[in-house]
């Protein structure tokens, strides 16, 4: 079972060197214990472009699709047997990156 662990940032900006080191240590644990699938940092949503190609031609819109103070600043995709395992890992992930995280199961 795979879960998406989204990192929610409310304007604190990029990770500090200490946070980066903690995130690295957490990633090592994910790999060592077989939970690692993928992870990535995104930073602020400012450089985003929204594309809508449902019509005749693709329409590009500058900026994120939703304006809010809180935004997705990065994510992990983890492999976990069940939600208890996922929640335990996500709690440690939140501690390591020093931000709120959200856990959602993949279909």
């Amino acid at each position: 079972m795979q879960y998406l662990v989204s990192v929610i940032d409310d304007g604190t900006g990029l990770a500090t060197p200490t946070e980066e080191a903690d995130i690295d240590a957490f990633n090592d644990r994910l790999r060592a214990e077989g939970h690692w699938v993928f992870a990535g940092g995104l930073g602020s949503p400012d450089p985003a472009t929204v594309i809508d190609n449902r019509g005749d031609e693709a329409v590009f819109t500058d900026g994120p699709f939703v304006e809010s103070k809180e935004y997705l600043a990065g994510f992990w995709i983890i492999e976990a047997a069940d939600l208890d395992v996922a929640l335990e890992l996500a709690a440690e992930g939140s501690k390591s990156c020093n931000r709120k995280v959200e856990v959602r199961p993949f279909l």
Binding site: M1, A81, D82, L83, D84, A86, V103, P105
Partner: peptide
């Protein structure tokens, strides 16, 4: 069902 909340008694620790 979707998030797979386990059907079990928690570990001694929890």
């Amino acid at each position: 069902k979707a998030a797979r909340i386990p059907y079990r008694v928690p570990s001694t620790e929890d």
